[in-house]
Design a binder for these strands. Structure first.
Lengths: 333, 333
DNA sequence: CTGAAAGCGCTTACAG
DNA sequence: CTGAAAGCGCTTACAG
């Protein structure tokens, strides 16, 4: 059984190709009788229209490309799920690609999607603008950035979270509990306006609540070693509570502390960005600053749909971060 | 800047469409001079071949569909990553779809992939055979099942894990530590040969090590309530160590126990299937039976490639499960 | 209401 | 070595 084509359906229903097309797409007038006959023939044959051929004529693929750095990161998995869900309900298929925080692969994927003439692209950019990303813009393919943005592509709308509200709530909580020495670990800050902004927001807000000499900021790159040494530094400075701008760092830190007998919420208090399920499984459960990833995802998808379907001028949006206190933050010693 | 077509490249290089096609695909003889000119023209114009048009002629899309129940489940995220990685290196693009353990969505996705004439499909099936899955087989599109299988589709090869080795190691460990009352919680066993097999393997192996009246088996469906009540039952029966066949259940149980002050590794010992990162963050860390998901993924991908590229008759494969003991299993009280 | 024809962007025999 | 032509499976004016 090879693929059934529109021709087979026409033959079987004793009509022509054009009539079948019109009947199955509800376009133009057709007599109810022929329409019914055609639908039955299509059903009997198990006809599945070739979307490639369809798309070539109508320049509409109902396909959207989604690019995330790493699908194994639960934050991105949640994001991808929310986006795919929203898009699916609107009749679009989402193709999820992974760039592995790797520029080359990122561009290979984008190019491949472009060659399939996707109707739009949702991208969590990694690093700066790339050739393939510029190609998307040049070809006028609708695109939105989600979660992060790229500093030199201002024409692309972005849906991300505003770190200030959650950080403010978190820092106020620490302040209220009597902490005087707070630290911030900012993750892979290089090239990332998002992580830069988080750090800046921390500095600003902490500056209004704590003394200058009670505020400590460090950054990690990827990798275990660095995270361990940063934690050591924080400890040696007598930092009482530390906020992680990058949840993957927090995960490493928790694992490290567990293996060294450090007790979170006692030896040191801890807060991380991203409301991940695993942060509720640890003992104690980890306080988080939620980016409301679900909201970011659905907003991003809707924004793209607005562009694809050309309703209004959709603009960038920010979702408020939200502090969720749990037992990893205790009173100051 | 609309899309650049092969026609534009021909015009710019002063050649014909057919020559451009041959030059860019390295097929047939072309003089080095014209080839160079064409390549330059293509580069200057930023030509990206239309893969839809390409595929229509050559019946090769270099596209593979991957269907997983829920990408937010870290086990499937790992699986998807491994598969996508292997396929990417072989020159294939993977489109990841999520069925949300929902038959309708599963079929909608498959049909959509079929309409794009993917070169193959890798599926983690949910429930039994569906109409769309049968359509794949009928149309002779290469397909493999991964992680789970469907009882009534024997023609489809499957790569999954053999539960026996890991279970055997785990149960021997429990036995050696002096446990006499062991429990097994089997997850959503309905319609799932995989979960059924795990339970059967547990019964068989436990039967050789423990007394009949020291073996307890229960199953959960999805949802919190059920998991809590099952745990209660296990406790009331005096079960000393429990093995979870479904890691999502274990996650719930850990969370429940944490909120009730139960201490894992002391009040009860615990082992779960699936070597998830989060199981190393808990205190104590959770002993697991690893399915070696990475291996399953890459084997599954390779098996599909063998079918797609018609090398030999690729057959089903099993990966051995592996027991990784950690602190969630203590000595018997 | 329905059919024949053109054309979307490619590839692939077929001539030259 | 290179070009003109047919055709992949559709949709969409255009006639009838």
């Amino acid at each position: 059984m090879a693929y059934v084509t529109i021709r087979d359906v026409a033959l079987r229903s004793g009509t022509s190709i054009s009539t079948v097309s019109r009947a199955l797409n509800n376009s133009g007038r057709i007599s109810p009788a022929t329409k019914a006959a055609i639908e039955q023939a299509a059903r009997e044959l198990g006809y599945i229209p070739d979307s490639r051929a369809k798309a070539m004529r109508s320049t509409k693929t109902s396909l959207v490309a989604l690019l995330v750095p790493d699908i194994r990161n639960p934050y991105f998995a949640d994001l991808a799920y929310a986006i795919q869900d929203t898009l699916f309900d609107a009749g679009y298929c989402t193709s999820i690609g992974t760039s592995s925080e790797n520029g080359e692969k990122q561009d290979a994927y984008i190019t491949s999607m472009l060659s399939q003439h996707v109707d739009g692209a949702i991208i969590v950019p990694r690093g700066g603008a790339t050739p393939a990303m510029r190609a998307i813009v040049e070809k006028n393919v609708p695109m939105v950035f989600v979660d992060r943005h790229v500093s030199d592509m201002h024409e692309v709308p972005v849906v991300d979270s505003d770190p200030a509200p959650g950080l403010s709530q978190a820092l106020n909580d620490l302040h209220d509990r009597g902490f005087t020495r707070v630290g911030y670990i900012s993750g892979p800050i290089l090239d990332s306006p998002t992580f830069q902004e988080r750090e800046a927001a921390f500095r600003t807000i902490a500056g209004t609540l704590f003394r200058e000499d009670g505020i400590f900021v460090e950054s990690t790159s990827f990798g275990h070693v660095s995270c361990a040494s940063v934690m050591r530094k924080m400890r040696s400075w007598g930092v009482q509570a530390v906020i992680f701008g990058y949840s993957q760092d927090a995960i490493q830190a928790i694992s490290l502390m567990g293996s060294r007998g450090f007790v979170i919420g006692k030896d040191i208090s801890l807060i991380s960005f991203d409301d991940l399920e695993m942060f509720t499984l640890t003992t104690p459960r980890i306080s988080v600053i939620s980016q409301q990833v679900q909201k970011i995802g659905s907003l991003g998808a809707k924004l793209l749909l607005d562009r694809v379907e050309k309703r209004g001028r959709a603009e960038s949006q920010r979702v408020k971060t939200l502090y969720i206190p749990r037992e990893s933050v205790a009173a100051a010693l």
